[in-house]
Write a protein that binds this DNA or RNA. Structure first.
Lengths: 339, 339
DNA sequence: GCGATCTTTCGAAGCGCTTCGACGATGCGC
DNA sequence: GCGCATCGTCGAAGCGCTTCGAAAGATCGC
């Protein structure tokens, strides 16, 4: 491996000149710089990572804390980890992956050893142990998700409340009168996963506000079987469904409605909101307000890199507005009393 | 942050004594060691990562190269990346995630800058660009998957050939006479993904060897619809199906067979082989020979860590024997002519 | 009781880079 | 023509750790 000393010798200059020529932190004659650059790439020189880290007090590494719960949707979390990594590279950072138990312990370790310049926290619970940890870590940290107590934190997330309100509004405005929400599994909410709870509350509040009949159900297994049955028990005239649930449950919905003679959108309109899978390839594609991993992670990494670069890291909650994608699964209903 | 000098001062010994007391690389009186350890943990001392890397010529970081193809099964790949990370931690290594285009370029970069001590290559294609790269990198590398030209490489993978043979044998031994294989999508094979091809070839060879009627199909979309139709066209008496395909296709199979009046296992036996999803939660659970991410990654990381630690890194292909999990989806058929 | 041999600890030399201060050379104004 | 600022380059001091060689004590054999 070529070192900076080799490049200096080859270019006939001092080590510090090479460093400045490559970093551009001091002015260097064009002629000298060219000689240095030529020597560097002829030798295939790349600076030794740990030497650079040690001297520059910067690792150019971001730790990604991603616990994996038993009820975790692997594909969704993969997307977040990958997008974080991808965006980090655009800022010239690498990412260290911290999973399972190490999602917690690794945060402490990579911050204390200064292995990481900053931390992105994924899969945030309402009452997440990583919240107090982040507070005392003295290492810039951004949460993708919103825990209960956000004091002192920087958080980024889809505006689930807005998505829930918008879903209800769409259906009500289109004349729907009995709206069901298929939420996440009960165990997911019990564990304290943050966004299903936020979505659920906003859904209830908006239904009240709009004065529309509504019901909520949580799937048991991995299909929408039981959920559909329970919704129909409570709302025999069910004409709108909001999905804020997992891919397997959502993808089974059309077929299960079909067994009861219900067709989307003829009999029931459907909106999937705040979900991280695409509904485009479903037999009946649903309108959706996606939870866009790329958007969330890009915003998170931007904030983190700013904080690392010394711009202030003031606590704040950044909520990304939902985007509505129309796939034709919602149609207007005649309001009762209309022809 | 406390440094080793702080610990040395607190314990009243020299820096090198602290280093040796903590690493155990030279003998230290029990009394001195205890004083050092006490000082270290009272100060919350953790060695500065880059300083340690620089001095010790070892980063304790493993790079994980994971390109993401358009037809990639995110959940499956998540499992491999996570398991690699998890097992690496058990060996006291952290993992750097390299995705998308950076799966290639990042390998070069992390090896050249000596950011990584070793590399795990996931999602290997038959004709993978990372194969020649690994050869010239002078950085220990283990492939999880088997490319076409394995000269000079260390590869770990499930023995897909054995899994295919065993699936065919099970069915033939149980009296099945017309066996269909639902493989991966054609585009996946065309791209050169390695294991579907290996599985397919071994399936064909074993069917020939056992002299059983057989057919192969590749799904078009995300269900088994077309596949079942095509298999039945070629094998009207289809009584056994081998699945080496994606989760969505597999999970749709029972329902689609049902629409044709076929029930598993009454009319058709099914074995899922070399698949990375679990069939346990399917409406009809299938017998399976799983592609176990943990087993593959554990073997890969073990080999890699050995290589990093200087044990020789001789090229070799490690094929893990498949494990058969019986879930009752295969039953014996009366052989023609028997009562 | 004295040299030989261990054992335990210390000092110092790096690892390869960044960055600060300084120095010679050049250009400017007056 | 002299002082003064400016520019481009260099030398050296770290960053915090590991590790080698050696010094200082303790132990032993004869």
């Amino acid at each position: 491996m070529a070192t900076i000393a080799d490049v200096a010798q080859a270019a006939g200059v001092s080590i510090s000149t090479v460093s400045y020529a490559l970093s551009g932190k001091r002015s260097i004659t064009a002629e000298t710089r060219d000689r240095v650059l030529a020597a560097a790439d002829q030798l295939g020189y790349l600076p030794h990572a740990s030497a650079r880290m040690l001297a520059a007090h910067r690792s150019h590494i971001i730790a990604v804390s991603e616990p994996v719960h038993p009820d975790t949707d692997d594909a969704a979390h993969m997307a977040f980890a990958m997008q974080t990594t991808r965006v980090a590279r655009e800022h010239n950072y690498d990412t260290l992956l911290l999973v399972h138990d190490d999602a917690f312990e690794g945060m402490r370790r990579s911050a204390a050893t200064q292995l990481a310049d900053g931390i992105v926290v994924l899969d945030v619970d309402v009452d997440d142990a990583r919240v107090p940890l982040a507070r005392k870590l003295a290492c810039p940290t951004v949460f993708v998700g919103v825990p209960a107590d956000t004091a002192g934190l920087v958080c980024v997330d889809l505006d689930f409340e807005a998505a829930a309100r918008q879903a209800v509004d769409r259906l009500v405005d289109a004349g729907h009168t009995q709206i069901g929400l298929i939420s996440h599994r009960q165990e997911t909410l019990t564990r304290g996963s943050n966004f299903p709870i936020r979505f659920l509350r906003a859904f209830l509040a908006q239904c009240e506000a709009r004065g529309v009949r509504h019901a909520v159900t949580h799937p048991n297994g991995h299909t929408a079987d039981g959920s559909v049955r329970r919704l129909l028990e409570q709302l025999p005239g069910l004409d709108g469904i909001v999905l804020n649930t997992t891919a397997d449950v959502a993808s089974s919905l059309s077929a299960i409605l079909a067994t009861r003679g219900l067709e989307v959108p003829r009999d029931v309109s459907v909106i999937a909101a705040g979900v991280s899978f695409t509904t485009a390839r479903f037999a009946v594609p649903f309108d959706t307000m996606p939870l866009d991993a790329h958007a969330s992670c890009a915003a998170a990494v931007d904030l983190l890199v700013q904080a690392i670069d010394g711009a202030e890291h003031t606590p704040r909650i950044v909520l990304l507005p939902p985007t509505y994608i129309d796939r034709g699964s919602v149609i207007a209903r005649a309001t009762p009393g209309s022809p």
